[in-house]
């Protein structure tokens, strides 16, 4: 089943399944502690690397799962919706988004979970994000060309580097493991200094 490929994402069945997927998403975000903006921003003060650990574990789990399912013929990677790589607007968007993350304390998904836990600052952040979307509409005529800058025919990183996607997923897992070891060391040092 692939509702995107069938063009049935926005049918009642698609909306229901998206609701189910979203519930799982919200559940695990909250279990991880991401309904707390202080916990989310603690990584930027080197106090708590849960953001890095959770994000990298999730990315690696899904990346390896997708490669295994594709290798055994259970999923056609070519039929999935792939977020397009347009590197220049994504670099600029990432910088602006990151500023919003540390100043506002949330990202859109975690703010939903924060709101569900009763945080008023999460609601205000979501209102701000809505206003930001409308501000983008005003900016759009001036940056329209830039929004398509840097497609450079590069989709995935393994493709751009000329290696197999399976090797790419394995390298991602190795980088994640190294980051987990490093992050845990930094956490220990910071807690000793500042218990």
């Amino acid at each position: 089943m692939n509702l995107f490929a069938n063009g049935t994402l926005d049918t009642p069945l698609g909306l229901l399944l998206a609701l189910v997927v979203g519930s799982g998403f919200g559940f695990w975000l909250e279990r991880a502690g991401f309904g707390s903006s202080r916990k989310l921003t603690a990584i930027f003060y080197l106090q708590d690397f849960a953001v890095l650990k959770v994000m990298f574990s999730a990315m690696v789990t899904a990346a390896i799962g997708l490669q295994l399912l594709a290798a055994t013929g259970h999923v056609d990677l070519g039929a999935l919706y792939v977020p397009e790589s347009i590197v220049w607007p994504q670099a600029v968007g990432g910088l602006v988004f990151g500023a919003g993350f540390v100043v506002g304390g949330w990202c859109p998904g975690t703010a939903a979970v924060g709101l569900a836990s009763g945080k008023l600052d999460a609601l205000v952040f979501l209102v701000g994000a809505g206003l930001g979307s409308l501000a983008f509409a005003a900016l759009q005529p001036f940056v329209g060309d830039f929004l398509h800058a840097g497609t450079c025919a590069i989709g995935s990183l393994p493709q751009a580097l000329g290696v197999s996607p399976a090797l790419g997923a394995a390298v991602l897992a190795a980088v994640a493991l190294a980051a987990f070891v490093g992050a845990t060391k930094v956490e220990r040092i910071m807690h000793k200094r500042n218990p």
Binding site: A99, G100, G104, F125, A129, L131, G132
Partner: peptide, 22 residues
Amino acid sequence: LALVGGALAGIGARFASGCTSG
């Protein structure tokens, strides 16, 4: 700051066609 940060995140997500999730 939550409002300002939210606005920045909202603009940034539209530039990038997605946020930390998508």
